[in-house]
Simulated assay, not measured.
Amino acid sequence: MSKYKLIAIDIDDTLINDDKEVTPGTQQALEDAVAAGVVVTLATGRAYASAHKIARQTGLNVPIITYQGALVKNLLDEKVLYERYMPIDAARKLFQYCIEHNLHLQTYIDDKLYSREENQKLIDYSKLNNTQYYIEPDFEKLISQPTPKMLIIDEPDYLDELIPIFRELLGDGVHITKSKPYFLEFMHKEGTKGAALAFLADHFKCDLSETIAIGDSWNDHEMLEAAGLGVAMGNAIAPLKELADYVTASNNDDGVKEVIEKFVLSQQ
């Protein structure tokens, strides 16, 4: 038997290649892992609505980690197992700051993406994630509603400058991370892939030492650090590779397949 019982895989630039596809080789490896009794799940910053399409295409039927870990939901009956909402007072402060500094802010309510206005950032984002969006000019009325994630889109260097400002402004009840260089994301402090992985390990009665986490971006670092085996993709950012236990091939070279074959299937 493989000593690993649960594998959590990031979607973008990890499970899917640059053509946004799960290759046949990787698909086969996922199926082989499941056949070997391993729980295979996804862990993504994407909304559930966007993530579940990919999960279903790959034939998975387990709970998946979405919104960076703020929502864990069953694929079969869509039952919510774990959810953490952004603190409302912090959401208001973030909204005010974005209005004053003319920043593009978007939020998710009931798994729908909302923005105050239509612009190129929103259009590009929705194309990238294959997500429908809704425009709500009276954004203030959305802010008081529970959201698992808020997101600012801007230039990477500018976002890096904003992070310490937001940490100060929003306090330690909020988890701030970058999923991609242009995306700055805000969740509840327990809305991390690491916290969600710990929750799922407990849910499936396995130890964190029996889990594998695979990712490419900084928003994956909590789950790589929490997992028994933290794997960075060959195309991952340098800081993630430095803390990973293993660096696999890139997302265009079946890196996920390599991990499953090396650490799960060969241990049978």
Rank of each mutant, 00 (worst) to 15 (best):
D32Q: 13
A33G: 09
A33W: 10
V34H: 04
V34L: 12
A36K: 09
G37V: 10
G37T: 08
V39R: 11
T41K: 04
T44E: 06
T44D: 03
T44Y: 08
A47E: 14
A47K: 13
Y48G: 02
A49M: 08
K53A: 06
Q57M: 07
N61L: 10
V62R: 08
I64T: 10
T66K: 02
Y67E: 09
Y67A: 07
A70E: 11
L71K: 09
L71G: 06
N74K: 14
L75C: 13
L75G: 13
K79S: 14
V80L: 06
L81A: 12
A90W: 05
R92C: 02
F95G: 03
Y97C: 00
I99C: 05
E100D: 08
E100G: 01
L103K: 12
L103P: 01
L105Y: 04
Y108W: 14
Y108F: 15
D110W: 06
K112D: 14
L113I: 11
Y114T: 05
Y114F: 09
S115N: 03
S115V: 06
E117Y: 11
N119V: 06
N119T: 03
Q120L: 11
K121P: 03
K121L: 12
D124I: 10
D124L: 12
Y125M: 08
Y125Q: 08
S126V: 12
S126P: 09
S126G: 15
K127L: 14
Y134S: 15
Y134F: 15
I135A: 09
I135H: 05
D138G: 02
F139E: 09
E140P: 03
E140D: 09
K141H: 08
I143R: 06
S144E: 15
P148I: 13
M150H: 10
I152D: 11
I152E: 04
I152L: 14
I153L: 13
D154V: 13
E155V: 00
P156K: 06
P156C: 03
D157Y: 10
Y158T: 07
I163F: 03
F166H: 08
E168N: 00
L169W: 08
L169R: 02
L170G: 05
